[in-house]
Amino acid sequence: MSNAVGIYAVEDVLLVSIKDDITDSDVIELQDGLSEEVVRTGARGVVIDISALDIVDTFVGRIFAQLSGVAKLLDAETYIVGMRPAVAMTLVELGMTLPESNMALSVSQALRRIRANRTR
């Protein structure tokens, strides 16, 4: 995987960090690699930190949606965290509200929710 993306297993959650110079092929590679990691590690949650991203366009938004859908089929919840306000406003204008993904403001908030949902 290119060094624009890092996947770290923390207990039963995969933390994904993304750098701002990510390319479309890096995003596709992430989608493939992540679904395999979910199965390999038995992860129950995926947390994608996009706080380094200046923009999320329709391509990246579509892959995030697919990735969340695939993770769900593999019994893992996906949270997207750290979205900048300007990115959120732009996504709404693009008509992309990412209904397939859960949102959280921070990694720790996402982790708390994943844990809470699991004990329910």
């Binding site: 110079d21 990510i22 390319t23 479309d24 200046d54 923009i55 999320v56 366009d57 900048r84 306000p85 300007a86 990115v87 406003m89 732009t90 204008e93 693009l94």
Partner: peptide
């Protein structure tokens, strides 16, 4: 190259000290 184009435009907005929302919209 698409990433390069984004970065070049982003730098141009930074040089103009543009607000984040103006930059994000146009770079997108």
């Amino acid at each position: 190259d698409v990433a390069r184009a984004r970065q070049a435009v982003s730098r141009a907005f930074d040089d103009l000290k543009a607000r984040a929302i103006r930059k994000t919209r146009f770079v997108t």
